[in-house]
């Protein structure tokens, strides 16, 4: 006999679809199950798919939270704290039901490793919680490697209307595989810092970001993000580090390297309680940036964040 109550089990199926009709039919059926059980419902998928679901639900769409994932989930690193935990924590009693589609055909090769790690980390973030998250995958347009990864990051797979347990489920292997070394940025400005240089590092970053085209609140956000990462290096990463700033494919890129090692895979993705001291620095970087890539290992940690220009 199982001692685990099904009410406290995290349910995380991948839905592989090939047509709009199949997408609408499956997602609407999933949401209607939730409506029948009085579960709070949220849908975070790319804009056009949002409309398919809204149209399919008709009058039943009232009361469902709809979010455009290309906006709220542009940086996959903020989906867990801001979108998924944000909704689940706002409804602490009973099961909540969410459709989350963080990977679409337009995701770039630079974004994808962070997307795959995000999908893997959902399993750690919601272990033992009464939450159901369905993740649709466009099998007709996504790379076969993306589909293969989804089979490893989801314990349950739905394809052609049939549901089965994944026999290759291993989210930790996906986190490890996409912990990729980050090649040096080309044509860049470099600043080495220790604790005494934190204000100078921030001013350096601000001046470089402004020179490269960032302005207004986005410039202030980049300055905050650099301040948090450089402070993390001083406090947790061996006391010093190297800040590098450049551009890549229409993005401002800021990178901080230090000698530390990130051991908590959910660092920056666990929303802190309001009165908690600490635990917000990396989360702020995830909130303000369009993408965050991390490489960590015995030789040190590199965090690189991107702002579209």
């Amino acid at each position: 006999m199982s001692t685990v109550s099904t009410d406290e089990t995290f349910v995380h199926p991948a839905l592989f679809y090939r047509t709009e009709a199949e997408y609408a039919r499956q997602t609407v059926a999933f949401l209607r199950e939730g409506l029948a059980g009085d579960e709070p419902l949220a849908v975070a998928v790319p804009g056009p798919n949002l409309e398919l679901i809204r149209d399919g639900l008709g009058a039943e769409a009232e009361g469902v939270l709809f979010l455009d994932m290309t906006d709220v989930g542009r940086n996959p690193g903020r989906i867990i704290p801001r979108v998924l935990r944000g909704f689940a924590d706002a409804h602490p009693t009973g099961r909540v039901r969410i459709i989350g589609e963080p990977i679409w055909a337009g995701r770039s090769a630079v974004e994808y490793p962070a997307c795959a790690q995000h999908e893997a980390l959902i399993n750690a973030a919601f272990d033992g919680r009464a939450v159901t998250i369905l993740c649709p995958y466009d099998e007709a347009r996504l790379d076969p490697q993306v589909i293969a990864d989804a089979r490893m990051t989801h314990p349950t797979l739905i394809s052609d209307g049939r549901e089965e347990n994944s026999d290759v489920y291993d989210w930790e292997a996906v986190v490890a595989r996409y912990n990729e070394r980050l090649e040096p940025l080309a044509g860049t400005a470099v600043f080495a810092f220790g604790g005494d240089e934190l204000p100078a590092a921030r001013r350096f970053a601000s001046a470089q970001a402004a020179r490269l085209g960032l302005a207004g609140q986005r410039l202030g956000d980049a300055e905050l993000a650099v301040a948090e990462l450089t402070t993390n290096s001083v406090v947790h990463g061996g006391g010093r580090g190297t800040l590098t700033i450049g551009t890549e494919a229409g993005h401002l890129v800021c990178e901080v390297r230090d000698a530390g090692r990130l051991t908590d895979p959910l660092a920056g993705r666990r929303p802190p309680r309001p009165g908690q001291i600490g635990g917000r620095g990396l989360m702020l970087v995830h909130y303000v940036a369009d993408l965050v890539r991390v490489h960590t290992g015995d030789a040190g940690t590199t965090v690189r964040f991107y702002f579209s220009l």
Binding site: L224, A227, P274, G275, I277
Partner: peptide
């Protein structure tokens, strides 16, 4: 001139 997240946290927690 500038307050980082730790500084903002101290202010918010003090206010609370």
């Amino acid at each position: 001139v500038f307050v980082d997240v730790a500084g903002a946290t101290a202010l918010a927690v003090t206010a609370m």
